[in-house]
Design a binder for these strands. Structure first.
Lengths: 294, 294
DNA sequence: CTTATTTATGCTCATAACGAGTATAAATAA
DNA sequence: TTATTTATACTCGTTATGAGCATAAATAAG
């Protein structure tokens, strides 16, 4: 029963959240669990830093599961331990993909994403209707909850629940019947997309109460740059003035002497993360300053 | 490299949070990962229900780590996958222990617990002073943050961080030098207490945004009973009127026709959990209605 | 040189959530 | 009867949150 470590490396580049992939985007980096590491966490860190040359920021364990192998030889299935790691993209690296290539409906910052949700919801409704009354009603409720229909708001943390719903409905290539029509989005091998969905959900939850977003930022940045990074991760637009209020009131950042140079419009002050708050308690206000969709 | 599943079974009985243990309280139930289960989760559920006869409510994976074996034969260390499971205690069962027997300082509902924190903090300060200036200052900050000193509030979710700080300081039997004086609290074998701390922290966090507390309740209950259960888990006293407001405003419960019979004082109405909200979105207000310590 | 456009930044306002406490009701014990 | 205990209904001030107005400081367009 071999044990493998899987790393979901995330960076945000140019306002797009990116994930490091292999095999033409079909796989996540993984390696064997090596003996002799003090802990799994440090083992993963060493291994990734050696393989990719990346210095990892925040690293956290995601989930462990038993991979069902292709054959039915259940005895030698792998145990997969997945990790989320935050980093920055270096120049000219390969294998980085926009995570919304895999989950287009998770990007609710643009009207396209919201339109896609409507189309997906229609297909899911069809699936619910095809079921007997009782399970059908339960399905409809799950659809409404996870996709924020019927006036229920969109919950950006339900990435995994949405993917699993689509999986159950046979609307993703991983589960679709031969020739079945699927929903947009790149496929991954094995449980790749499930793991990515778990990572996205975890990161979206985490940025609300820990200052991990700064692991994805350069040393100095404007507040709009920071906002765009949060929006990229959360997949939701935010209210600019309130975002600024949230960040500054909590003393998460401090002004530098400089202003941004690449500017259109009034130049923005550059800020720096106050590293001394890293260990500090949860950042206030679990609510990000969202903006109502147009 | 064998793989083991470890279950932290939690119940609340008589206002005390209990954990199921083996070997006189020194170990948590564990078993081998068996082939042929659809998922680790269902595997654990079947195995626990067969072993203990318990119907499990909410089950969730906690953390996976590599157990360092006693010898230095690093090759055959185990991978341990730990789970949190919520249930109710049946009559006359053995092996259930108050989790505060293992972490007395985590119970902040009584003055004893708060006094214990003060004594522990003093010993930790001593440890910080013994270090060189720079790491000493960092240690003092960690101590203040995790134990809520210097006017910082007590954060009930930092169970693991507090245990790890004590571990590093050599103040728990698991890490103390021979003959070293340790802090009160029962010991467990191996990583038992670390796993229990992880479970406690996870559960304390979870009750804030998911209605899992009802997995620990009987079918009908008074609002005070519910409050005492939350307080037992959180280890913090709550404001009675505000607790009631929080629960009723969110339609988590509905009145039954009955009132409590075992009453002193005015009899309380019995309530029932509205199961239909189980799938529903996060419960509002991540803040429990705490009350300022006296 | 003046004006439109763009982004930055400061500030107000209404509402909801939260922490704390007062007041009253309904039971039992003394 | 009266004290004690628990239940339940409200009030009130403070803070957090969502929304938007107004002004500042830059470049681009005419």
């Amino acid at each position: 029963m071999p044990t493998k470590l899987i790393a979901v490396l995330i960076a945000v580049s140019d306002g797009r959240p990116m994930v490091l992939t292999l095999e033409g985007g079909r796989a996540l980096p993984s390696g064997p669990l090596e003996a002799g590491h003090r802990s799994l966490q440090t083992g993963l860190r060493l291994w990734v830093e050696r393989q990719t040359g990346h210095a990892l920021g925040h690293v956290e364990q995601l989930y462990t599961f038993a991979d069902a192998p292709d054959g039915d030889a259940a005895d030698d299935r792998s145990v997969l331990i997945s990790y989320l790691a935050l980093t920055r993209i270096h120049q000219g690296e390969h294998g980085w993909r926009n995570w919304y290539d895999y989950f287009p409906w998770e990007d609710q910052t643009a009207p396209d994403g919201r339109a896609l949700v409507a189309r997906i919801a229609a297909r899911l409704e069809h699936w619910a209707h095809a079921a007997p009354p009782a399970p059908g009603a339960a399905r409809r409720q799950r659809i409404a909850l996870t996709f924020g229909l019927d006036g229920l708001g969109w919950d950006d943390e339900l990435v995994l629940q949405r993917y699993e719903l689509l999986w159950e409905a046979g609307l993703v290539p991983e589960s679709a019947p031969p020739g079945g029509r699927t929903v947009p989005g790149l496929e991954m091998a094995g449980d790749g997309r499930r793991i990515l969905a778990t990572a996205m959900a975890r990161l979206r939850a985490k940025i609300r109460y820990r200052p991990v977003i700064f692991e994805l930022m350069p040393d100095s940045f404007t507040l709009l740059h920071l906002q765009r990074t949060v929006e990229a991760v959360a997949g939701q637009p935010m209210h600019k003035q309130n975002f600024r209020r949230l960040i500054t009131q909590q003393d998460l950042v401090e002004e530098t002497a400089d202003v941004a140079s690449d500017t259109r419009g009034r130049p923005a002050r550059l800020f720096r993360f106050r590293r001394e708050v890293i260990g500090a308690r949860r950042i206030a206000g679990s609510k990000l300053p969202l903006t109502r969709p147009v």
